[in-house]
Design a protein around this nucleic acid. Structure first.
Lengths: 234, 234
DNA sequence: CCGTATACTGAGTTAAATTCATTTTAAATG
DNA sequence: CATTTAAAATGAATTTAACTCAGTATACGG
């Protein structure tokens, strides 16, 4: 009885909450937001209709719950998918693949995001959180000089996610599966390097990073061998 | 019967149809699709509620009407905004500016597009039509050798529109006005050339090309000054 | 002017979201 | 344990808004 009064119920409550969320996600994904009846969701969650409203203010709020959880999980997955010691370029590739693959697999849920309250609102805090994964990678890239200083991270973020999302829609529309080359080509134009695989070309070519590294090591050598002259990089 | 029974009424009918569409667009833009009551739209159009349903099967269909008209008009505007004799690069810039500016100005209507029936359906034929404007520019660019043969037009289309749409959202979110540089930077990475104006910083900064040149000249120096020792960067 | 087809109207129907008085279950108390 | 009390759950009743349709108004050819 005593001991963990709150904890016990807390666990139960959370289990129920999550069961409602699962039922809602499934139903929304199957028949869309408008097509889904709260009564159906309640039934799927083995709960009375009124109970749903104990956990969520209304249907919109339930949608926000589903969508929010999705993005939170996406953030976790993304962090797991990125190797901390990899180069910026590699990390971007990892994030890009992970992102494209995820939104293709859960296309319906992603689409629901647009039914959640338009801009503003902290409804989509989780999306903002997710996006920071990208920002961190880029910032680290800049700090490590793998990317030019004052790289317009914010703008590249829109390039990155905008392109991947539209590409995903295109793939879905044409009923094509996940395609790796989308990410490769995107990075090619975003970060430079490796040929923009027009369709499926394969040849190598010095990347920006490679150049930068080579340059640095050479500069180091130069500095050692000869230190009498110009310093510009401040 | 004879004469122009259909034509006379056709004109009137179209006038009314367009008046309903205007009322719907205004109302949707103000309170959103869900927030809009058909009865309000009817009142705004000075028409009985039932009349709306003579022109549109249901509320969704009305939305499709609003959204479809928007994209049709956008296509017309885009075609007008593009100079037929300009270079591909210039045309892309014209389309990009026009697009970004338009979707910023009519952000609410663009958002409504996502409420229209998800993928499939020929509901969004007008969007597909609009997108062809881009394809034509690119194809012409290829035909004229202003762009490499087998340029992946389809993928660049997603880069182009995806980036601009996400950029527009970002601008809206931050309550910033139309910003020309978004288009400039986008084209810089898409087509190359003219420096990618980082954010607003004006100072120069090593580009890939610069690095490559510097590297080459340094290597040349090295080769001249000392040619006996280690080479690691392969 | 009349007849008829066409356009329009808005009260009535219906479906689904949301509420809330009541019941059930769980925890605490003695 | 039996009892009290608080929390959680229920589902019938309410509300809201989309959609229908029987009836009315309008226009137009003859």
């Amino acid at each position: 009885m005593p001991a963990t009064p709150r904890h016990t119920s807390r666990a139960r409550v959370e289990a129920k909450e999550s069961s409602i969320l699962n039922a809602a996600e499934k139903t929304f994904a199957e028949v869309g937001f408008d097509g889904a009846k709260v009564s159906d969701i309640a039934r799927a969650a083995s709960v009375a209709e009124g109970t749903v409203y104990l956990y969520y203010k209304n249907k919109q709020d339930l949608l926000a719950g589903v969508v929010g959880r999705f993005w939170t999980q996406l953030t976790q997955g993304a962090e797991a998918a990125i190797q901390p010691e990899a180069t910026t370029r590699e990390q971007l590739e990892q994030l890009g693949r992970y992102h494209l693959n995820s939104i293709l697999e859960q296309f319906e849920v992603v689409s629901l995001t647009y039914r959640a309250r338009p801009q503003q609102e902290q409804d989509l805090d989780q999306v903002r959180e997710y996006v920071r994964v990208f920002d961190r990678i880029m910032q680290r890239g800049v700090d490590r000089d793998e990317l030019p200083k004052h790289t317009p991270i914010g703008q590249l973020r829109d390039v990155f996610f905008g392109t991947l999302e539209f590409s995903a829609r295109t793939l879905k529309l044409r009923e094509r599966p996940y395609d790796h080359s989308v990410v490769t080509n995107l990075l090619a134009i975003m970060v430079g390097s490796s040929s923009p695989t027009p369709s499926s070309a394969k040849d190598k070519e010095p990347s920006n990073r490679d150049l930068m590294n080579t340059l640095k090591s050479i500069q180091k050598q130069l500095k050692v061998a000869d230190n009498s002259s110009s310093n510009k990089s401040s």
